[in-house]
Design a protein around this nucleic acid. Structure first.
Lengths: 203, 203
DNA sequence: GTCTATATCGGGATAGAC
DNA sequence: GTCTATCCCGATATAGAC
């Protein structure tokens, strides 16, 4: 595989990512991907055997872009409140750089749950470290007796939801001003971690 | 339009809802809808001129199933904490009866933001009543000075997210046991409203 | 490795009989 | 109002020249 090969392959993957992420597997057109990559349809099949294979490559890349932060949340050796702050800020930053990926993953997740479950398993993700840390803090009396699984889901929800529901929220909350929405997302880094910590810390 | 007409039309809408909600506009097949309705493709076009028209009917119904709760949240005349409790419980119940609708709406929302924005506008939804209520409570000193818009987004996020991300959460958190997931959702009614109230109430 | 031309098929939509 | 048969286009995929 020479340099030119790599360039074309990268160009295809980049174009495919754009199109698949915006339109989903069924909504995407091979022609559109070819156009965006500056090549023709036949080449897509030369590099990736089928639309399905191309999609899988794109989907894996998208999924594994959002997983490392989750793995960090689970395993990093930090005080709970610090970990929460760091996770919220990092995760919102990561999604902000790829704002359409969550909705893309969600759609595929519901279209093909088993396929995705297999991929997730391969990452070896495991919440037990974080869960135990929460139980220890409850034991010590520093936080309220919250269910750590709900805590994880709450944090994920508050970080991800503003991006997947952006068009609706932008209308309800900001009367469609997209500039204000960027500022809103920026605020959330602080707002969400304070919200979470307030919700669990012992008074 | 006689009784038989209504029956067939209802059967089509019901079948279309099932198929569209699970597979989205592009993923759905008219043949599959016809099969599920116990009729043939031609009849679909007799009742609804095109796939697009049929989809629109289904989408509107789905959207307006989740909007009334939101309108209630905004306008109902109740003490803030009571309103939060009631909203969380009602909203999770509503979604639980139609667990795939949120992901369906999210996908369409990102595929066709303008179309959806138009529909939303037609409901005349307006957050100002709720927003003012939050500011009044801050004034009175009963809650922390939180941004009411973030509060709304947080509540929506925590109610909706567990359903749209169900396959992934079910694996990470429960090692794929679907029975436990129903119990988890049930718990959330209490867990989320306590979480929210704890997060904002003055200590 | 990249292109043009074409095969093939699936699916939305319509015609027309009953 | 409901059916069968069919049209027709668009989209994936392949053949084959360069």
């Amino acid at each position: 595989m020479n340099a030119k090969d790599l360039n074309t392959e990268q160009a295809i993957l980049k174009a495919a990512k754009n199109v698949f992420v915006m339109k989903g597997m069924e909504g995407a057109r091979m022609q559109e991907i070819a156009d965006e990559a500056g090549i023709n349809k036949a080449l897509l099949h030369y590099y990736f055997r089928s639309k399905d294979k191309l999609f899988e490559a794109v989907f894996k890349e998208a999924l594994f872009k959002l997983m490392p932060n989750l793995l960090d949340l689970m395993k990093k050796d930090l005080a709970l409140f610090e970990k929460i702050k760091l996770f919220v800020e990092n995760y919102i930053n990561t999604i902000n750089e790829n704002p359409h990926i969550p909705a893309f993953i969600i759609h595929e997740l519901n279209r093909n749950p088993e396929r995705v479950a297999e991929l997730i398993k391969s990452t070896g993700i495991n919440p037990s470290f974080f869960v135990n840390q929460v139980y220890e803090e409850i034991e010590k009396g520093t936080i309220e007796p919250v269910n750590p699984f709900h805590l994880i889901v709450n944090m994920l929800a508050m970080c991800i939801f503003p991006f997947i529901a952006r068009p609706i929220l932008q209308y309800i909350i900001f009367n469609e001003d997209p500039k204000v929405y960027a500022a809103f997302i920026e605020q959330r880094k602080k707002e969400v971690s304070e919200f979470v910590i307030n919700a669990i810390k012992k008074k």
